[in-house]
């Protein structure tokens, strides 16, 4: 019987968190998985759906959908997404601009430009497994009412 009041409390907290993000720039974060189904024309259609059963090794897609709900354009828009510790970065999702990535949370760039320092002081080229954070910058101001989305693929460690 303790369960019901607790569930209610969680729902309230979730609603509060959603409203905290209210502002001219709204970003909705979601973690999705690919679902494959046979299309009528015989091809396989891939759609992104909410996951019900993600296990280690599964591919997951992080989607950040953004929208300027205000009346003024917004300049210098930056979205950054520190990766959960259990998540290994793979690549930009097809159709999404590639993010700048970081292996230390400070220096961002394309993966090929980054290096990882080993405990012995030597460095090596960064691999997707080294990525700890991804970031996108909008090159031009985001007009009022316009929207878009970024997405990247990752794997559950």
């Amino acid at each position: 019987m303790i369960t019901r009041p607790m569930t209610a409390a969680v729902l309230v907290a979730t609603a509060a968190a959603a409203s905290a993000a209210a502002g001219p720039l709204q970003v909705s974060s979601s973690i999705l998985v690919e679902a494959r189904s046979a299309a009528p024309d015989g091809t396989t259609r891939v759609t992104l759906v909410k996951p019900t059963k993600v296990t280690p090794g599964d591919k997951v897609i992080f989607v950040l959908a953004y929208r300027n709900s205000g009346a003024q354009p917004l300049a210098n828009v930056v979205l950054d997404n520190p990766l959960p510790r259990q998540i290994a970065y793979r690549s930009a999702n097809p159709g999404s601009p590639a993010p700048d990535v970081s292996v230390d949370g400070k220096t961002y760039g394309s993966l090929a430009t980054l290096r990882v320092r080993s405990p012995d002081g030597s460095t090596r080229a960064a691999s997707p497994n080294d990525v700890t954070s991804v970031r996108w910058r909008l090159a031009s101001p985001l007009a009022a009412g316009s929207q878009g989305q970024f997405a990247f693929q990752a794997v559950l460690k």
């Binding site: 993000a21 001219p24 974060s29 950040l64 300049a75 828009v77 930056v78």
Partner: peptide
Amino acid sequence: IVNTAGLRYDADGTAQSTSSN
């Protein structure tokens, strides 16, 4: 697995920051 994205932007010349759900 918990994920939140951070946002920064300039509105009316002022830097703002917030976070996603």
